[in-house]
């Protein structure tokens, strides 16, 4: 099962790479907002999983790496299972160390665009 998941993940990653150049205007706007507000925790950086205290690590990617233990991608942009309601709920309610995000930071329209970006491969 784990191998199948990894295979699917690789295929989706390749698909995602191919589609990165073909984002719709809404998805492209979502990526801009994602890069500003989400990427500092949930970005894709080599070594960006928990590497010990004091080590370079992105908190969201690290936490999801620890949580999913490889069963799901730690990098949000690689996920193909995120539902709009789930994204909206987590952004507005926070989860564990991730705090609430206000509308003066990410407006409802911006959040719709983030959702479009993170669900682009579904």
């Amino acid at each position: 099962m784990r191998k199948l998941t990894i295979l699917c993940f690789l295929l989706v990653s390749l698909l995602g790479t191919a589609q990165a150049q073909e984002l719709s205007p809404t998805e492209a706007s979502g990526k801009v907002v994602f890069d500003k507000w989400c990427e500092p925790c949930h970005g894709r950086i080599a070594g960006g999983v928990f590497g010990g205290f004091g080590a370079h690590a992105l908190p969201g990617t690290s936490a999801l790496g620890v949580k999913y233990k490889g069963d799901l991608p730690a990098v949000l942009e690689d996920r193909v299972d995120l539902q709009p309601i789930y994204i909206r709920t987590i952004v507005r309610n926070g989860l564990y160390g991730m705090p609430i995000t206000r509308k003066t930071e990410v407006s409802d329209a911006d959040l719709d665009n983030i959702i479009a970006y993170l669900t682009r491969n579904q």
Binding site: C41, I45, F50, G54, L58, P59, G97, M98
Partner: peptide
């Protein structure tokens, strides 16, 4: 991106939160 400790160089990040977020010791 690969710098281990950005704050002492005045480069902002949110990396500190990995200490208090979910990690192998509080999983």
């Amino acid at each position: 991106p690969a710098l281990p400790d950005k704050v002492r160089l005045g480069i902002p990040s949110l990396e500190i939160f990995h200490i208090v977020n979910r990690n192998p010791m509080n999983d």
